[in-house]
Design a protein around this nucleic acid. Structure first.
Lengths: 121, 121
DNA sequence: TTTTAAAGATTACACCTGTAATCATTAAAA
DNA sequence: TTTTAATGATTACAGGTGTAATCTTTAAAA
């Protein structure tokens, strides 16, 4: 079933998460800015269909592609994987690392404090 | 120079970060619990030396291996990569995701609030 | 109607990874 | 001293990944 999405494949997914369905041509256009060759994009679309992470409907002789995975679900899986792999599952440590290593604006800090308060229940 | 550390290589790194220098035999012992074959461990040590992510001193005819990368540095790089890849650099979103998806204890929530207060300066 | 061009399918290919097995050297055991 | 066993080096090999080029079919253009 739903196979792994590689790093580059994720870039294609992002395009489709932003808008779908899209023809291969449209995906190619949106990725041209990031220097993706047309052939490469087509290869990826093919592979990703085989993997089952995207699907398509036909429109004449072209395909219109859409994600088969919800972005939130993907993010959640990636996040859990990362948490386990790098922080051995210790969320506190993860959060502390990001809070300390990144400059956060007052707004962001306040927003996060509110979030923590909401969690308090 | 300092090449990429793969997912499995990271497991070997963790062993050496925990204690080093270690002979290959010692690394093998510590990974046996996780079902790593001795040959596999040796292969990894070799590759990682070639990549430059670990080094060794000789002791008689054996090698004593040590990390060439600090764990904190590694964690920071991985964290930044993950942040960019999955959250497009948006720390706030990342933090919100983890805060909301993970059950945090009162203690953890308080600890984090303190952290945010400290950052307030 | 013949030529061309676009779409998707197939093939290519090198490098990385995970997972070992085999080889060569040499210290230790018999 | 000959055999054995441990150590690191080399070789193997399939599957994944990034990056395309070529092939086939068919709609559109000339």
């Amino acid at each position: 079933m739903s196979n792994r999405v590689s790093e580059s494949e994720q870039i294609v997914m992002e395009v489709l998460w932003q808008e779908s369905p899209l023809s291969s041509q449209e995906v190619v256009e949106r990725l041209a800015a990031q220097d993706w060759n047309e052939k490469t994009v087509k290869t990826f679309l093919n592979r990703m269909v085989k993997k089952g992470v995207i699907g398509y409907e036909t429109q004449g002789r072209k395909y219109l592609y859409s994600p088969n995975i919800k972005r939130e679900d993907f993010i959640e899986e990636e996040s859990n994987g990362f948490l386990d792999k790098v922080f051995k599952g210790n969320v506190k440590e993860l959060l502390a690392t990001f809070v300390q290593n990144k400059q956060l604006s007052k707004q962001e800090l306040n927003y996060l404090k509110e979030l923590l308060d909401k969690e308090q229940n």
